[in-house]
Amino acid sequence: MLKVGKLGKWTIYIVLTIYVVLIATPFTMIFINSFKSLREIFLSPFSLPSSFNIQNYVEAWKSANLFNAYINSFLISTLSVGGILVLSSMLAYVISRYEFPFRRTIYLFIIVGLALPARLAIIPIYVMLDNFNLLDTRTGLIVVYIATGISFATFLMKRFMDGIPKEIEESARIDGASPWTIFLKIAIPLTRPAMIVVGLVNFVGIWNDFFFPLIIINSRNKETVPLAISIFFGEFSNKWQLISAALSLSVLPIMIIFFLLSRYFIAGMTEGAIK
């Protein structure tokens, strides 16, 4: 965008490279340390591991309860995102397409939730889940995630649907299709790009969330990945080789998915928050 000369270009590339090194170093460190023995971590911090021993991984995988945690995180994130997409696309659709009483009021009411920190309401949420016998359950966590995801998803999908011409739906309506059929057969397929963005943003957010599992989940067999790592970090403090392996195991899969889908991520995340 700027017109920069040779010197300017060099400066830009040097600054960006330094920044990338700053980002890559911590990840590289845990990855390298995950193959070392504790002795090696202490004595030769800058050298590569003497052997690529995967023993740390085996031990961390077992003692951090990661298999269980991965399944829980996957179940909770997927079902929550599914719920958010179904409920929000329905709401967004009628707000975008139909005139009805309180339409704008309902929309504004939903929009207010965009920047409302749901964590502040954790005490009543805790008490209510307790009353519904949903405390310390994955279902309880999913219900909370769906409810707190509705604002953002509805907002983004409604705005996207506003941009889709209504003619196709009009002709289907004249042919006698019910609103439900039109929604399923015409509106949903056309909204797919927005749904991918909403799905991805929510999936990452829920996968990464720590606060709600910390409060709502108590049993080890229901914990999510961030919670499992947090407990492991407390129990195995100072066993840095195992902590490194556990951290690598929790970070690498997300990184791989990110590198594969970075186009959607970058479009989705920035789109979501600001525009």
Binding site: L16, F27, L247, V251, M255, F258, S262
Partner: peptide, 19 residues
């Protein structure tokens, strides 16, 4: 560069803290 700059953001804040 875009991808690398964004990379830490997709990692859970709690894991970033531990790292």
């Amino acid at each position: 560069f875009q991808m690398m700059v964004y990379l830490p953001n997709i990692i859970s804040m709690i894991l970033v803290g531990f790292i």
